[in-house]
Simulated assay, not measured.
Amino acid sequence: MRRTLFLLIFGLAGLGVLLWLGVWQVQRLAWKQGVLAEIESRISADPIALPPQVSEAVDKYRPVIVSGEMESGEIHVLVSVKQVGAGYRIIQPFSTEGRTILVDRGFVPTTAKQAERLAGPMEVTGNLHWPDEIDSYTPAPDIDDNIWFARDVPNLAAALGAEPVLLIARSQTDPNVTPLPVDTAGIPNDHLQYAITWFGLALVWAAMTGYFLWRSGARTESEAQ
Rank of each mutant, 00 (worst) to 15 (best):
L19A: 13
I43T: 10
D142W: 00
D144K: 11
Q83K: 15
V81C: 01
R170L: 02
A13Q: 06
G210P: 03
P164Y: 07
E123Y: 00
A57H: 13
V35H: 12
W130S: 12
N176G: 14
R3Q: 13
Q114G: 10
I43M: 09
G186K: 06
I90P: 03
A45F: 08
R170G: 00
L8I: 10
E40L: 11
A185F: 05
D145I: 01
R215G: 01
V165C: 00
Q33M: 08
G68I: 06
D104E: 10
R215V: 07
L128V: 11
P131C: 09
Y88T: 01
P52C: 01
R3P: 06
S80R: 13
G106F: 07
K60G: 10
H76A: 02
Q83R: 15
Q114L: 13
D46H: 13
A157I: 07
L180F: 07
T197N: 11
G68P: 06
V177C: 03
L213W: 04
P175M: 05
P154D: 02
L21K: 01
V54F: 10
P179L: 05
L167V: 00
V81R: 11
V23S: 08
E56F: 11
I65V: 10
L203M: 14
V79Q: 04
R2Y: 07
L29Y: 12
D59Q: 04
L15W: 11
D142L: 01
A169L: 02
A202N: 06
N127C: 03
I134Y: 11
L19Q: 09
D144C: 01
V23K: 08
L18T: 11
F212A: 11
V108G: 03
Q225G: 12
G120D: 14
A169V: 04
A86Y: 14
D174L: 12
A207P: 06
H129T: 13
N127M: 03
W24S: 09
D152H: 10
V66N: 05
E133V: 00
F10S: 15
D174K: 12
L102P: 02
S216E: 14
E71K: 14
S67A: 13
D152G: 00
E133F: 01
K60P: 02
A206Q: 04
L7I: 11
Y61R: 04
T138G: 05
P52D: 15
F107E: 02
T220I: 15
V182S: 06
M1H: 13
R28G: 04
T125P: 03
A45P: 08
G217H: 14
V54T: 14
T96L: 04
W148Q: 01
E133I: 00
G186P: 06
L160K: 06
V35C: 03
I91L: 04
M208A: 14
R215F: 04
G16P: 05
A49W: 00
L180A: 10
D132P: 06
G186R: 05
E69K: 11
N127V: 04
